[in-house]
């Protein structure tokens, strides 16, 4: 190693004042007689000065709203073991999403029925799984109960589609996620249709509140979809997306139930 190479290897540390006295003295002796190494040190100095003067950038103003929407009012789901999270048949969550739709339809079509307190879909699905230790039959069963009491052909159809996904654990996590997402999307579409039909009958204040909130809610879901599409088999990204769907469903459900009052 030439003396220039040896000096260059410690030039960064010399600049940051991290060498001991003997090493620093050696570098200084070399620099006194070597224009090339002086130039290298000068470059490092200007690079560091310029980097330290780079401006910080503020996050876009809408980010706070999205962060709060995604973080607030969301019960922490029970912690599952990693393998369970990875292979959990997420179609269960889809079945529970369908249950939310059915429950809403029941309330909407039978004003005398006491309004059920509908828990976030995935949360309830996860609780069903953790409580029974097993699975898909309980998820389908709870949803079936609602469907029978609803007695609506529309609800039963949604339920059948959701329950069909429960029958067995699909081979790949990726397919599971895609299927669960389809159920969520179907539930969202149905609630959206209901809202579109009813919106003009809602009191003005509630209508305004809904219209104000729906945009940020949709963009939270859209950005979660984008994130999840970057990691289609990553349970964490998918879980984040499903949480966004659950929040969206709950929001729409609240809007419908509130609007019907």
């Amino acid at each position: 190693m030439s003396s220039c190479e040896r000096i260059e290897a410690v030039l960064s540390a010399y600049h940051d004042d991290e060498l001991d006295v003997a090493e620093s003295t050696e570098v200084e002796h070399h620099l006194a007689g070597c224009a090339e190494c002086r130039r290298a040190l000068d470059d490092i100095r200007r690079l560091v000065q310029t980097a330290s003067a780079l401006d910080g950038r503020d996050a876009p103003p809408q980010l706070l709203t999205r962060v709060l929407a995604a973080s607030l009012n969301r019960p922490e789901p029970p912690r599952l073991r990693l393998w369970a999270r990875r292979y959990l048949p997420l179609s269960l969550a889809g079945a529970a999403a369908a249950a939310v739709v059915i429950a809403v339809i029941v309330v909407r079509t039978s004003p005398t029925v006491e309004q059920p307190s509908v828990t976030p879909a995935g949360g309830s699905a996860a609780r069903v799984v953790s409580a029974s230790g097993g699975g898909s039959a309980s998820g389908g069963g709870s949803a079936s109960g609602i469907a029978i009491s609803a007695g609506t052909a529309r609800g039963a159809k949604v339920l059948r589609a959701a329950a069909a996904a429960d029958v067995k654990i699909l081979a790949g996590a990726r397919r599971e996620f895609a299927r669960a997402e389809q159920h969520y999307q179907r539930a969202v579409r149905q609630l959206r249709r209901i809202i579109a039909q009813d919106l003009h009958r809602w009191p003005l204040a509630r209508r305004r509140a809904y219209l104000r909130a729906v945009g940020p809610m949709d963009s939270t879901v859209a950005s979660s979809q984008k994130l999840a599409s970057l990691a289609p088999a990553d349970p964490a990204a998918q879980e984040m997306l499903f949480r966004a769907y659950r929040e969206q469903l709950r929001f729409m459900q609240d809007a419908i139930l509130g609007g019907a009052r």
Binding site: R57, D58, A59, P60, L63, V67, S71, M240
Partner: peptide, 27 residues
Amino acid sequence: YQRRVFSLVLRMVGSSEAEELAQDVFV
């Protein structure tokens, strides 16, 4: 922390992904 987080994310991954990732970080 938003300024520090967003600047870091922006410089690490570029502007097209920075907003989504910064949201992910805060969540």
